[in-house]
Design a protein around this nucleic acid. Sequence first.
DNA 1: GCCAACGTTGGC
DNA 2: GCCAACGTTGGC
Length: 143
Amino acid sequence: MAYWLYKSEPFKFSWDKLKSKGEAGEEWDGVRNYLARNNMRAMEIGDKGFFYHSNEGLEVVGITEVCALSHPDSTAGDDPRWDCVDIRAVCDMPKPVSLKDVKANPKLAKMALVTSMRLSVQPVTEEEWIEVCRMGGLDNPPR
DNA sequence: GCCAACGTTGGC
DNA sequence: GCCAACGTTGGC
């Protein structure tokens, strides 16, 4: 089991929109970055992840899980390079965790959110997972 | 709205 | 295969 973080600009695809998709979830399509794609190829069913709002909000707002393994991205047309997984909403963060809070926490100094700001699908370590969940008010992190 | 960081593209 | 130009991302 691994942990991940997905970034989205809320006016393009928001947390509320993912929640509205329910159990079926949604394709995490449109990613055109090899590292991010490779991260998705490595995902397994049930892998949990943070949902982060970039540009507006700048905070982790919810918990997701992978509900379909990596498959061709339906928005990639004839280009065979791009794959994506499907994810669905698991629960809200009781207290959204802001980028500012993450940066202020020395335990999270090495988090990809800080060091690889522009990567849209990032790996999260178990320590980071537990810490961010704790900050967000989830004392029993989903795993 | 600005600008720095960084990934991608394409000419050589 | 290098590297300059260019485009995009995303925090501020």
